[in-house]
């Protein structure tokens, strides 16, 4: 059996995630117990931040794919749109879920409907869910591809909005870790675990995107063969 490069990268990413979990919960140093309501819950951060980071990469892929399909009618663009929305959904759900667990422990509530970053990121994840479920509900065709690509293009506006949300409308969510100000930077062992997590998630979604493109190619081939059988 031929093993595809996408599957190897996917497996490497998965192993990286396992390593991240191990380091986050059993190796990384504890935070200052006076600085947080629930210090041990801070370990979720090593999962949450890389997941959100990977989700942003996936949404960028979704945007590029949507633009390629919408403006160029590129078949590769459509494959990237599918892969980006699926990876965005998976990573977005992981970031939202881990954020809710942390929020429940630290803030006493899993969600704050008035926090811009939570809501804009939640909307991005719902957009990815809409694209994945919506696409499955429709027969493949230019009408559905055009419509979903339009949503993919509009949705990307939320990515920079989500990133800057904690700088402009600081309500509850902590400030950015990557590219933030001096107070927000971390160092030492914590940064190492975070880096391993970010690399693992990035590897995982690259593997997912490659595998998804391959699967879409097979689906489209099946569709063509089906139409051939129908005599079209």
């Amino acid at each position: 059996m031929r093993v595809k490069s996408g599957e190897i990268i996917l497996a490497l990413g998965f192993l990286g995630l396992m390593l991240t979990l191990y380091l986050a919960f059993l190796w990384a140093p504890s935070v200052n117990i006076n600085a947080f309501e629930s210090p041990e819950a801070q370990r979720i951060f090593y999962w949450h931040v890389p997941a959100a980071w990977a989700a942003f990469i996936a949404f960028a892929v979704l945007f590029v794919g949507s633009a390629l399909w919408f403006f160029k009618r590129s078949p590769l663009g459509w494959k990237l749109h599918i892969a980006g929305s699926e990876a965005g959904l998976a990573c977005g759900l992981m970031a939202v879920w881990s954020g809710c667990v942390w929020g429940a422990a630290e803030w006493g509530t899993p969600w704050d409907w008035e926090d811009w970053r939570l809501n804009s990121f939640g909307l991005l994840t719902l957009l990815a869910l809409f694209l994945v479920l919506g696409r499955q509900s429709q027969p493949d065709g230019v009408e559905s591809r055009d419509t979903f690509s339009t949503f993919g293009l509009y949705g990307f506006v939320l990515v920079p909005l989500t990133y800057v949300a904690t700088r402009i409308w600081v309500i509850r969510h902590p400030g950015p870790v990557i590219g933030g100000d001096e107070d927000s930077s971390i160092s030492g062992d914590m940064a190492l675990v975070l880096l391993i997590g970010a690399l693992s998630f990035t590897t995982l979604i690259i593997g997912h995107i490659l595998t998804s493109i391959e699967i879409t190619k097979f689906e489209q081939r099946m569709d063509r063969l089906q139409k051939k059988l129908d005599g079209e």
């Binding site: 719902l126 869910l129 559905s144």
Partner: peptide
């Protein structure tokens, strides 16, 4: 083609 089946309301919680 199936506009009623498209889960568009997933975007309304915002």
């Amino acid at each position: 083609p199936r506009s009623n089946a498209v889960f568009i309301r997933l975007l309304t919680p915002i």
